[in-house]
Amino acid sequence: MSQQSYDVIVAGVGAMGSAACWHLARRGLKVLGLERFDLGHAMGSSHGLSRIIRVAYFEGSHYVPIVRRAHELWRETGELAGLKLLHITGSLDLAPEGGGPVESSLQSCLDHGLSHEVIDAAEAMRRFPGFQLPAGHLGLWQPDGGFVASEKAIYAHVGLAQARGAEIRTNEPLIDWTPTAQGGVVVRTERGTYSAGRLVITSGGWIADAVPALTRNVATVKQAIGWFSTRRPELFREGAFPVFILHVEEGSFYGFPLYEHPGFKLGGPHFGREPMDPRDQDRTPSETQVRLIRECLARYIPDAAGEPLTLKGCVYTVSPDEDFIIDTVPGVPQAVFASACSGHGFKFASAIGEILADLSTSGHSPFDLVPFSLSRFDA
């Protein structure tokens, strides 16, 4: 097999990998992106038309500087590609008072000076009459939240990267890779062998195959998303309804205003995710997850509780603490990876692509990546 040489090889051209390809190519580097499926496939966690982008972040204030940068980059990338990628709708975190998520989101707002408002259930329903909320719920309203057009975002990153000379090869999964004595890497696929000075691994549910050190610290699970018929679509149109995270006794669910699909999109339940092997080709969501989604709609968003129009499964890669893992491969500083985004990573993809480009070129990032280090699991 012939061997071609590149500055950087990116293994996995989904949300993070496509962004990395763009940020590396725009710096003038010779880039090869390898994707095991078609571009924009539905076998991972980047499909489904839209992904929430929240700035108030109950998962931790340390995420806020990165998501703010992601906001900037989604706008810039959309402008460069001639696409609207970032849709600002406002975001609403809804949870029982004292339950934690609203209080944590509020703390992130206070830590970073974000515009916000705490509202009770009655006010949330007055503003957004599509909701029927328990009396004890609070809402954290943050006007800068919204959603990213997820599939368009991948196409935009790849198109921009190709315009700068990046080579993207689809349906060509990485088989294995080895570091070289000269400080580079050799990557092997079924079609060829390639060499590069640096390797970026962003292969989602398959990442432990390429980074065995992750085997004990990542798990792959399947999450359900669905689009459902609405009785009153005017309540849920973009401009009238926000993106939201809803914490209720049935679980944690996330939803969107109507966008491109005639159905109302709801995903969840967050803690009802089911372990799976990503090599299993079946992406049909489980009956249990779909039942819980429909029960959530019937009880809390009844005007969107019609029959399902589309049901899909997403593969998530989850870490034990549900924080990301962004690091170099142990003992191989020329190989960097991003993984285990635990179901809340897409919004960051534009910025994580830039971070991976920084780590690949200078070895440093302007962001504090200590919370995302692999070594935290050794403590």
Score class of each variant (00 low, 15 high):
Val185Met: 00
Arg75Val: 11
Asp282Gly: 05
Ala15Val: 01
Gly48Thr: 03
Val290Gly: 12
Tyr155Gln: 11
Glu123Ile: 11
Arg376Pro: 10
Ser115Phe: 03
Ile325Phe: 06
Phe128Ser: 04
Pro101Val: 02
Gly165Gln: 07
Leu34Val: 07
Pro179Arg: 10
Ile168Gln: 07
Gly146Lys: 02
Thr193Ala: 14
Ile154Lys: 03
Thr310Leu: 14
Thr328Asn: 00
Ile88Gln: 15
Ala305Pro: 08
Arg51Ser: 05
Gly82Leu: 09
Ala95Asp: 03
Cys109Ala: 11
Ser115Ala: 14
Arg191Gln: 09
Leu83Ala: 15
Leu374Gly: 01
Glu250Pro: 00
Phe346Leu: 06
Gly139Ile: 06
Gly130Glu: 12
Tyr155Trp: 07
Gly331Ile: 09
Pro371Tyr: 14
Gly205Met: 04
Ser2Tyr: 11
Gly100Met: 13
Glu172Tyr: 09
Arg232Thr: 12
Val67Glu: 12
His116Gln: 12
Leu199Tyr: 01
Leu266Ala: 06
Glu103Ser: 05
Arg299Gln: 15
Ile301Asn: 07
Arg291Val: 03
Pro269Tyr: 05
Gly78Ile: 01
Arg54Ala: 08
His47Gly: 04
Glu72Ile: 04
Phe131His: 13
Tyr155Cys: 02
Tyr300Gly: 07
Glu103Leu: 01
Trp22Ile: 00
Ala153Trp: 05
Ala166Glu: 05
Cys21His: 02
Thr284Gln: 15
Tyr316Val: 08
Pro257Lys: 02
Val336His: 00
